[in-house]
Design a protein around this nucleic acid. Structure first.
Lengths: 364, 364
DNA sequence: GGACGTGGGAGAGCAATGACCAACAGATCA
DNA sequence: TGATCTGTTGGTCATTGCTCTCCCACGTCC
C-alpha cells in the first residue's frame, strides 16, 4: 500500500520517464499520448514502490481538496448524529472525498460558528455540510455562503442555503393512519411543549389525518409535556384517565412513548390490547426493546446525510446548482416501522371503518 | 473572517512589504527581526482583508498537515462512538489540529482496513486514531506502523501500537461493591456469552469482590445470555426463580438490565425493594429512563478519545514516545453512576454493612 | 522539405516557509 | 575623515509534490 516517502519523481526515475509522463499515465489524462509500453512501465513502478499521490500537493495545484467539512452540533448527545455522519461519510468516500469533522454546540455564539466555518475554509474544503441535532430553522454563519453548502435536518431562515429535512407531516400521518386502519376512532396524542417545527407539524398531521378519516378531534385528547420519558409519563397519566380514555395514542417521540408505557402499566392497561401506541424517531435502543416493541416512525438520518453529500458534491463538480434547491428544503420520507404496539381496539365494531384487517387480534 | 480568495501576497501588497515579512510576522518567527511599525501594518492588512493561511500550502511546505485521521468501526451503531469522537475532536481542536473521519466496519477485510489507512496516508495526516466499537484485541493494519497511532477501546495483539482502554475490572468491582455496601450478601450476575475481554473481566471482578468481602460465590447465581435486552430478560427469569433468588443483581450491561427489569416486573418483584440492580455502560437512554433509574458504571469514552488524542499529538510533536506505552494499554477509570436501583435487602439487618442510605424513591 | 502525427519532456505555477543575503544607518577605527 | 564594522530591517530565492500548458524531437508522407 501507500508508502509515505515515495513521490512522483521516484516513480519517474524507476520507470525511466519524466514526472510529467507519470502524472499523465496515472491520472489517465485524455489528451496525453503515451505509448502502451511506457504506460505499463509507469504502472508497474508505481505499484512496486507503493506510490500514492500526495493529496495535499494535488489539491494545492488543482484548487480542489476533495475534502468536505462537516459541522455538527453535539455529535455525541444523540445517536442520530452518527447516522447522518455515516450517510455522509459513505457517499463521500464512494466519490473520492473525505470528511473533516468539526463539533459545534447549539448554544455557541454566532462568532464561534463563523470561526468553525473559517477553520474549514482555511483547510480549503470544497464544500460544507452543516447538521443540527434536531429539525429546526437557523441563522447560518455568514461566511458559509463562500462555498457550496447543504444544511442537514434544518432550514436556513434566509433561504439562501439549500437543505434537506425529514417529512414530518408524512411520517406523522402514516403513524396516525396505522392507528385508524387498525380500527381506532378515539385516538389521543402526547405532544412536545417546545416550539420547534416538529411540535406543530406532528400535531397538524394528527388533526388532518383524523379529519380525512372523518373522525372528530378532541382537544382534551392532546396532552403536552417536555419530550422526554418523564414528560411522556406525566402526559400519559392525564390522557389515560378512565373516564375519557382513548384506545390508541400517537406519541411525539419514542422517549415519551417509553414514559407512556410505564403510565399504562401503572394504570393496569395492557399494550396493545387495552391501548395501542405509536411513536416517532425509531430510536433503536428504545423502540426495539420496549415490551411490546414499539411501532414507530423512522427519521431518515442516514438518507439525509447521503442526499446532502451527493448533492453537495454534484454542486462542487458543477453538475448541479444548489441555488435551485435553496428556496425549498428537500423533504425525505419517514417510513413507518411496524412492531407490536398496535392492535385493534377492544370493544368496537372493527368493520366500521377499518380499511384493512388488523394484523393482530381476530376478534374478541 | 477568512476570505478564501486572499493569499499571503495580497496581504504583502496591502501592507507594502514582501510575503516573507508577512509570513514572519504572522507566524511570529523568533529569529525574524521586523520593526514594530511594520508588524502593525502587516497585522492590520491581514485583519482587514480577512486573510487566513492556506493550510494545504502550509502543510506541503512544512511537512505537517495538522490533521489527524480517525478510523472508527460502525460510527453509527452505538452512541458510544460519538463520545469518543467528541473527546478526540475537542482536544484536537484545542491544539490546532483537525479530525478526518473514516468509517470502517468490524467485518471488513484486512485489505480494506489497510486501504482505509492508505487513504489517510495519502492525505498526509500526522497521526491516526483507531477506534473500535467495543473493547477487544485486534490485528492492526500493517501500514498503521508508518506513523504515530493510538488505539481507542482496543488492544493491539502484537503490542506494537499503544492503546487506551476502560478499567473493566475496577468498574465492575465498584459495581459489585456498591451492592455489598448496601448490605447484600446473596448477589447474582447476568453475564454475556460472547468471548470478549469484558465478559471475562467483569466476571472475574464479580468473584474477586465477593471474595474480598468474604462472601461465597455460587455458580448458579451467574446466568449468561446474549448481551441484549431479550437475553437479559431470559437470564433474569432463570436467576430470579423464587427458590434461589438473590437480593441483588450485577448486570453485564444496561441493556441486559433493561430486560431484567421486565423479568422482575413479571415476577412481581419491586425494584429496588425486592431486588437491587446495577448495570454497566451508562447508556443514557436506558439507564436514566428506566424506572427506577439504573445505577450503573460509566465507560470513559470521552476520556479515552481525549487521552488518545492528547498523547498522539504529543508523539507527533516529539514531546512523548508512544513506544513506551505500547507494551501495556493505558487504563482509564470507569466511574460508578449512582441512581435509584440499589437499596438495602429486605429481610436483613441493614446496619451490618451499609455505608450510605439509599437515595431512592421518596414518593410512590 | 514543409506538413503532420506520435511520443514524451521542460518549466511555470499553486501558496506558503525558511535559510541566507542586502541595504542602510550609525558607530568605530587607524 | 574615509573605510570598515555592526546591528537593524527586510527581501531573494529555492523548495514542497504535483498538474498542465506548451514545446520539442523524430519519423513519415507526398
Amino acid at each position: 500500500m501507500t508508502n509515505r516517502s515515495v513521490g512522483i519523481k521516484d516513480v519517474a526515475a524507476a520507470a525511466g520517464v519524466s514526472v510529467t509522463t507519470v502524472s499523465h499515465v496515472l491520472n489517465d489524462v485524455a489528451y496525453a499520448r503515451v505509448g502502451a509500453g511506457t504506460r505499463e512501465r509507469v504502472h508497474e513502478a508505481a505499484q512496486r514502490l507503493g506510490y500514492g499521490p500526495n493529496r495535499l500537493a494535488q489539491a494545492l495545484r488543482t484548487q480542489r481538496s476533495g475534502m468536505i467539512g462537516f459541522i455538527s452540533e453535539e455529535i455525541a448527545t444523540t445517536p442520530h448524529a452518527g447516522r447522518i455522519i455515516l450517510g455522509a461519510e459513505e457517499t463521500a468516500r464512494a466519490r473520492g472525498y473525505n470528511i473533516m469533522i468539526i463539533n459545534s454546540t447549539s448554544t455557541s455564539s454566532q462568532d464561534s460558528r463563523e470561526s468553525d466555518v473559517a477553520d474549514l475554509l482555511d483547510r480549503q474544503v470544497d464544500g460544507i455540510l452543516y447538521a443540527t441535532m434536531y429539525h429546526r430553522k437557523l441563522e447560518v454563519p455568514k461566511n458559509l455562503a463562500a462555498l457550496p453548502a447543504v444544511l442537514v435536518d434544518s432550514e436556513d431562515i434566509s433561504q439562501t442555503v439549500s437543505s434537506v429535512i425529514p417529512d414530518e407531516l408524512g411520517g406523522a400521518r402514516s403513524a396516525v393512519r396505522t392507528l385508524i386502519d387498525a380500527g381506532h376512532t378515539r385516538i389521543g396524542m402526547l405532544n412536545n411543549t417546545d416550539d420547534v417545527p416538529a411540535t406543530h407539524s406532528r400535531l397538524k398531521a394528527f388533526k388532518d389525518t383524523l379529519a380525512d378519516a372523518g373522525l372528530p378531534f378532541h382537544q382534551e385528547l392532546v396532552q403536552s409535556e417536555h419530550s422526554e420519558v418523564p414528560g411522556g409519563y406525566q402526559a400519559a397519566l392525564r390522557l389515560l384517565k378512565p373516564q375519557s380514555r382513548p384506545t390508541a395514542v400517537f406519541c411525539y417521540n419514542d422517549r415519551m412513548a417509553m414514559g407512556a408505557y410505564r403510565a399504562a402499566a401503572e394504570l393496569g392497561l395492557k399494550i396493545p390490547e387495552d391501548v395501542s401506541f405509536v411513536g416517532f424517531d425509531n430510536q433503536q435502543l428504545i423502540a426495539e426493546n420496549l415490551y411490546p416493541a414499539l411501532t414507530t416512525v423512522a427519521l431518515p438520518h442516514y438518507e439525509m446525510g447521503a442526499w446532502a453529500t451527493e448533492n453537495l458534491i454534484d454542486a462542487i463538480e458543477g453538475k448541479a446548482d444548489l441555488q435551485l434547491f435553496a428556496a425549498h428544503p428537500t423533504v425525505l420520507p419517514c417510513p413507518l416501522v411496524l412492531r407490536d404496539s398496535v392492535a385493534a381496539p377492544k370493544h368496537e365494531d372493527p368493520s366500521s371503518r377499518a380499511t384493512r384487517d388488523s394484523p393482530t387480534h381476530a376478534n374478541t
